[in-house]
Design a protein around this nucleic acid. Structure first.
Lengths: 207, 207
DNA sequence: CGCGGTGCTTGACGGTTGTCAAGACTTCTT
DNA sequence: AAGAAGTCTTGACAACCGTCAAGCACCGCG
């Protein structure tokens, strides 16, 4: 909150524009170094600004990080919406979902490890919790849309809660990410196979 | 490796004794502050030694951390062995396993969040990977012993790979830990319920 | 008693961090 | 054109970090 700052007049959005611009640069550094080792100087270094500018747009480091996380979330939540919308059979959905999971690890591994980093840090740092828990809820809903649609297409019921389905798939995904980043060649193939075999387990036997 | 150090003579075990003693103190600090914010000074401060002693027994910070992780692992792996050994029906095993999961979150939450912290950091820091991956394999085997025993007691087959079973249960466990640490009152009850409903899903329909 | 070596403390070093104040540059208003 | 407000750079600060060298305390052995 810009409490101590003088009231911003006309270019109120110019202000937010710079904030997201800084956030975008920060996410690059954060994804590369992780939360702990990303210094404000390094973040500013990877942008076109100098290190002092951060405190012009953000009160402190935590506010920048949280802003980054929320900004990052906004792009994530819709990741599987196309999968849900475009699939007309359960098999299609499973394949599209598994493919998308693999693809996002290939394309956005740094962002994913950053998310897991921040979520873990929130177990230690009080200040991160609110933002992390909010995003976690959003991700749970995102996964639930996929699972629920899968059930509908199959004409069967889901046997788990949204929370369990998310925790379960997130665990498998996280493990695949770790395997991929540590050079296990078959990590992504395993993820695809596990997704294929796991999703049917979430449904009740056909009525 | 104590390469540059002069060969230790008689009390070779006294040396290792101090190392584990330091590791034990370090684990307290690490569990409280996390990997990034645990300084050697703070670690030594929570022990009965001064901050310089760390470099007498460990080459650098990373060696201490890795020693800690391996030491921590040694106590973990057998956590569910009693569950496996003492259960004579599938229902007993599920209840005992679920109860043990809840219990270890209650009793050792700092250690668990530390483990997730280190595992996540290994996605960024090369030096941690070897130790982390080794422990992760050990944990996978630990979980597999439970699941396999559950299948045997049920007279059914497991439908997942050990890797998938571990990833899946670990995800649910991690989520429960986060919920518990962030004050969600029903986090542990949910974990118990989810364990009860998830384990049967891992088994093939009765032959 | 003296003496060497092990165990440990103390203090210092170079470097990095978050934060902020002072000033320069830019943009817009009047 | 002149001044005000907004924007950004620079440099400094205190605190903290990992690391290590110097030296103290204690031990058994001669």
């Amino acid at each position: 909150m810009a409490a101590t700052r003088t009231a911003r007049k006309a270019p109120a959005d110019k202000y937010d524009e710079r904030r997201t611009q800084l956030a975008e640069s920060a996410l690059l550094t954060l994804g590369e170094l992780g939360y702990a080792r990303s210094s404000l100087r390094e973040i500013a270094n990877n942008s076109e600004f100098s290190h002092g500018v951060v405190h012009y747009y953000f009160a402190d480091k935590l506010e920048l990080i949280i802003y980054c996380v929320r900004y990052y979330k906004a792009r994530c939540v819709t990741r599987y919406d196309a999968v849900v919308a475009d699939s007309s059979t359960p098999e299609q959905l499973v394949e599209a979902f598994a493919a998308k999971l693999v693809e996002t690890i290939l394309d956005e591994a740094p962002m994913h490890r950053l998310w897991y980093d921040l979520r873990t840090q929130s177990m230690f740092e009080e200040g991160l919790r609110e933002a992390v828990l909010m995003i976690d809820r959003t991700l749970e809903e995102m996964i639930w849309r996929v699972v629920a649609r899968y059930a509908t297409l199959s004409g069967r019921d889901v046997v788990t809660t949204p929370a369990a389905a998310y925790g379960l798939l997130d665990g498998v995904f996280q493990r695949a990410l770790l395997g991929h980043l540590t050079g296990r060649a078959d990590a992504l193939d395993d993820l695809r196979d596990q997704t294929r075999s796991l999703l049917p387990l979430l449904l009740a036997p056909a009525t």
